[in-house]
Computed example of a mutant assay.
Amino acid sequence: MLWFVLALIALIVIITLVLFRIEDLSHLDQHDHPVREGAPSDAHQEVLGRIRELGQSSRGLRGKARLLALRQHMDGLSDGLELASEFRGTDDPKGEWVLAPGVDTRRRVLYIHGGAWAAGSPRSHRGITDRLSHLANAAVFAVDYRLMPENRYMDGVRDCRKAYTWLLKHGPDGAEDASFVVVAGDSAGGSHTLGLLAWIRDNGLRQADAAVALSPSTDLTLTAPSNRDNIRTDPLLGPTFGGLSRVPLPVIWWATLAAFRVSPASAVASPVRGDLRNLPPVLIHASDSEMLLDNARRYAAKAQAEGSPVELHTWPGMVHVWHIFVSLLPEADEAFDDIQAFLQRVEAGEQEHRARQS
């Protein structure tokens, strides 16, 4: 009997190693990524209070009721914000245009919201999309991709791909080619953003001129050190996902495969594990206290090693995707100024390149 149990365990281990093929990425942790100097502003305490309210909104609830409460609370994040943009809904692809006054509609941003692939919406992230439309002088399309668990993970991926392909040829006023295209997203949407860039490259589409990923998830294998080291310092993700640190990684991988119906080691679920060559300029923002810090660091280090122009800018002590609290945090204003400067550098580089070729 003991022999049978040991043989069964050995077989499970072998199948796990063969099926998931988890490459060791720890060598990427040796790269030095500087963190901005300073401490969080006083307004950060108010943000922490908002996060506690988020937790309280679903306290005592379970299953579907808990998820619906979370979705409702997230959608309320845009309530009360003074937004100058026009918001114009669409049905195919599903989403909404965000149009700051006077924007050039040939300039377009595809925005992919976060929410652990199970929550969030264009409405919940209007504070971000409104600011992006202003700073990029662009029409922002916030895609309302299908969420889990009602839909499969790949349904959401396909919605993002469809939205990007459509965006190249369509603006808010109808068919019109895009002159400048950016893909941006946060957290789970940051994962979709980075995965989308590789898909665009591999399928011969016109590549985005630039991309922005805010606190992105890049590796669902949860092997990065900060997934465990930063549980106590991450007030948003720590209480929700910190318990996973007590679960053996192979169990997490099998559970992820069952829930997502894709391997956590695949490039579509974990962009850092894919081919990162020949990508457009990418700007990544992360906080040094969040659980996804090393997701960002590893992606930046690998992309740079493979020759892609990826920048990682890290803030001290910020909450996960602090950009969404733009009405409260001066650090959010700093982050958007940083994004604007990045896009200006990208465009200046493109103009210089065209001048050399002419």
Rank of each mutant, 00 (worst) to 15 (best):
V262I: 10
L196I: 14
T240R: 14
R246C: 06
D177C: 07
P250I: 07
I231P: 05
T223K: 13
R246M: 10
D173T: 15
R232S: 13
D219R: 00
L197E: 00
P250K: 02
G185C: 01
G185K: 00
A208G: 05
D209N: 06
F241H: 12
S215L: 03
L249Q: 15
V251D: 11
S270N: 00
S266I: 05
V282E: 03
A269G: 03
I284H: 01
S270P: 01
P172F: 05
A258T: 06
T193P: 11
F260W: 07
W199H: 12
R201W: 09
P239H: 13
G185A: 06
R246Y: 12
G185F: 00
L196N: 07
L244V: 09
N227Y: 10
L205F: 14
N227F: 12
G185R: 01
G171C: 03
A198T: 15
L194T: 04
V268C: 12
I252V: 15
A178C: 02
S270M: 04
A224G: 11
I231N: 03
T256L: 08
L222R: 14
G190Q: 02
A255G: 09
V282Y: 03
L214A: 12
P225Y: 08
A184V: 08
P216G: 09
L249S: 12
L283N: 03
L205A: 10
V247L: 10
G195C: 02
L249M: 11
A198F: 08
N278C: 12
A269P: 05
P280I: 11
G274T: 00
L196E: 07
P248M: 04
G171P: 07
G185I: 00
F260P: 02
S226P: 01
D186N: 10
L276S: 01
G243I: 08
G174K: 03
T256A: 12
A265R: 04
T218M: 11
P248Q: 07
V212Y: 06
V247T: 10
P172I: 01
D173H: 15
S270R: 03
P250H: 14
A184W: 02
R246F: 14
A208Y: 04
D219T: 02
D229W: 07
W253T: 06
L279C: 02
L196F: 06
L197A: 04
I284R: 08
R201N: 05
L194E: 11
G190S: 05
L236A: 15
W199I: 11
N278P: 08
F180S: 02
L249Y: 14
V247G: 09
I200P: 00
R201L: 04
V181Y: 08
V181R: 04
L205R: 09
S179Y: 11
D186A: 12
N203Q: 07
R273F: 01
S187M: 02
T221R: 01
P172H: 00
N227Q: 10
V282C: 08
T221L: 06
D202A: 10
S217G: 15
T221W: 01
S266R: 02
